[in-house]
Design a protein around this nucleic acid. Sequence first.
DNA 1: GTTTGTTGAAGATACGTTTCTCCATGAGCA
DNA 2: TGCTCATGGAGAAACGTATCTTCAACAAAC
Lengths: 353, 353
Amino acid sequence: MERAGIRDVAAAAGVSITTVSDALNGKGRLPDETRSKVREVAERLGYRPSAAARTLRTGRSGLIGLTVTTYGQEPFTFTEFAYFAEMARAATSAALTRGYALVVLPATSRHDVWGNVALDGTVVIDPPDHDPMVAELYRQGLPVVSDGRPGNCPVTAWVDNDHASAVLEILDHLAAAGARRIGLLTGTSTDTYTRLSTDAYLGWCHRVGQEPLYEEYPAHDPCAGAVAADRLLARPDRPDAVYGLFDPNGTDLLAAARRYGLRVPEDLLLVCCSESDVYATTEPPITTLSLKPQRIGTTVVNLLIDAIEGIGPVPGTDTPEGQLMPTELIVRRSSQRRPPRTTVSAPREPGEE
Amino acid sequence: MERAGIRDVAAAAGVSITTVSDALNGKGRLPDETRSKVREVAERLGYRPSAAARTLRTGRSGLIGLTVTTYGQEPFTFTEFAYFAEMARAATSAALTRGYALVVLPATSRHDVWGNVALDGTVVIDPPDHDPMVAELYRQGLPVVSDGRPGNCPVTAWVDNDHASAVLEILDHLAAAGARRIGLLTGTSTDTYTRLSTDAYLGWCHRVGQEPLYEEYPAHDPCAGAVAADRLLARPDRPDAVYGLFDPNGTDLLAAARRYGLRVPEDLLLVCCSESDVYATTEPPITTLSLKPQRIGTTVVNLLIDAIEGIGPVPGTDTPEGQLMPTELIVRRSSQRRPPRTTVSAPREPGEE
DNA sequence: GTTTGTTGAAGATACGTTTCTCCATGAGCA
DNA sequence: TGCTCATGGAGAAACGTATCTTCAACAAAC
C-alpha cells in the first residue's frame, strides 16, 4: 500500500496531472465541477502532496530558521531566560499564522544540520559583530532579520528595544522613589543588550554625578549571578537601590538582601529585567522591566516573511530598516518607598466562615 | 550570480555529476586525488547541495516534528510550564546531536503547515485518547513517539514518568513530616498526567483512611490557579499539607497561605511539581517534584530517530515499547517540620568589612 | 589468447511536483 | 464559410539530487 501520488489521483479521476494540480491549488481555468470531482478523489485516496517535491519545484519550503546563541557547549540555554522562551513561542505562533513553520537551529554555522534543511529565511537573535554566519546566509541570498541591532553584518531588517531609554526610565523611577546610590548588576558579555544598558547607566551616573556602583558576571551562569548579587550588597559603599539586567537577578538580590538583613523596599529598592510573573508574588513583589518579547518575536517573523514574499521595502535599499519597540515597566512594591494600599483582597476572609 | 548546482561543480571540475555526488558524500570508488579535487572545486564555487532535492530523492528530510497541545486558541502556551520549555530544549538539542532539526507544530491536524513540511517522524506530547492526528500520522507510515502514555492511539514508542509512584512518594513524605490532612491542587483536564496523579492521590486517601481534600481548576488558566489555591485553603476542613500538580501552584499556595496567616512549614506543608528553580529562593524554599524533562526529551527524540533509521525494535512487534523514567523529589524547607540547619552561608558577613 | 576481475567514472533514470506552452473544441460574428 | 476568442484541458520540461547500470581500460590468471 504505497502512498498515493498526484499521478494516482489523475488516473483515478480520469484527468491529467496538470488538472489535478490546478484543481487542488486553485489555479488554472477549470469548471467547479471538475475541481470538486478531483478534490473528492484526492480525499478518497488520502492524497498528500509531497512537500519535498513542491519545495524543489517552487523554491519555497515554508520553513524559517530561528538561530539561538549558544553559551558554552550546551546548544541552548535559551530556556534560562524567560525572554527567549517567550520570544520563540511568539515567533512560532506568528510563523504558523502565516503558513510557515519554525526550525530552531544553533548559531554555529558549521553544524551539519544547516546544510540539510531548506530555509526561506532566518531570524537571528542578537548576532555578534561581523557574524560569519549571517554573512554567509546573506551571501546565499536568504533574508535575515535580527532581534537586536546587528553588530556589523548585513541584515534585511532588525527589531530591538530602546534599551538606553528603558534604563534611564528605571533610574529616574528609582531616583524619584528616593534612591541616592543606584547600583547595577550587569553582565560580562559583549552583546548589544548588555553594552547599551551598561553604557546608559554609566552615562546617567556621569550626568547626575553619582559614582557608578556595579558588579558584572557571566550572564549564562546562574550561580555566578547569586554571587555577584551578594558581592554588590556586600560593598562598603552599598547601594540603596539596584537594577539587575537579567531575569534571575530579582530573586538573587532578594535572597542576598535577606541575608544582610536589608528590608525591601525600606532599605533597598529593587528592579530587574524579567518576563517571569513570579515576581508578582514574591515577598515583596518586585518591579520588573518587560521587554515584551511576544511583540518582538511577532514583529521579527512578520518582517522576515514580508521580505520572503517580496512585500515591504525594496531590496535595492541597502539601509536595513530598523525598528524600535517599547518596553514596559511594571511597578510593584519593591521600588516604592510608600507601598500603595494593596487592592487585591482575598476572595474570603479566613475567619469569615 | 546564480547559486551553483552540482552540475556547475561537475563542469568546473571536469568530471561527471555522479563523480561529484560520490566524492562529496564519500560513496562510490574514487581515488583520493579525485575526491579532494572535487571537494576543492565545490568549496571554491560555494556549492551547497539543495536540501529539497536531496529530500525528494532520498525520502529523508532530517526534520522531526514536535507537537504541542494547544489550550484555547493560543497555539502555544507551552512556555507557561517550564516543563515544556525544558523538554523542547532537550529534544531540540538531542535532535541536533544526531543531525536532525526540530520543527514545532500545533496539535491541530488541520493546520496548513502540516502538509507543507516533510517530516521523518513526530514527537507528540501527551496525546489525548483516540487522537485523530496521531492516527493519521501512523497511517502515513511515519514513526510517532509520545511523551506520556498514549491514550488509545498507535504509537511507535512512548516515554513517561511513573506519576503514580511519584505522588505516593510525596504523600508518604508529607505524612512522615507530620501531615494529617493532605490536600491536592489538581486540574480539570483529562490528560494522562492529571488523571494518573489524581487517581493515585485518591487511592492513597482511601488506603490510609483520609477523606480526599482537593480543588481542581483548568490548568491552562494561571488566574484560575491562584483562585483555586485560595479556595483550597479557605475550606472549613483546611488541609495541613498541600501538593500542587502544576508549576505555578507553589507561589500561588504560598501567597494564599500568607493571606490567611498560615506559616510554612509550621502550619502548612507545601510541595509542588515544578521545573523552575525559583522555588529554591522563595521564603521559605519550596519542595518540588521534578519530572526531569531533559531526560524525557532526550529519550523521546532518540527513540524516534532510532525508529526512523530502522534501529531498535522490529516494526512487526506491534506492542509499542513503553519506558518509565524516574522523577526526583527535591526536598526543601516547605515540607519539613524541623527545618534543617541552613548549610549555605553567605560569601561574606555584612559586618565583616 | 581468451577469460575474469578490478578500478574509475560516465549515462540515464527517478523522486513528485509546478507551470509554461500549446492544442482542441465550439461559440460568436462578419 | 472563414476568422477570432474564450474555455477546458493535456504534454512536457524543468527543479537538483542520488543511485542503478553500464562501460572502458587495463591487469592478472588460466
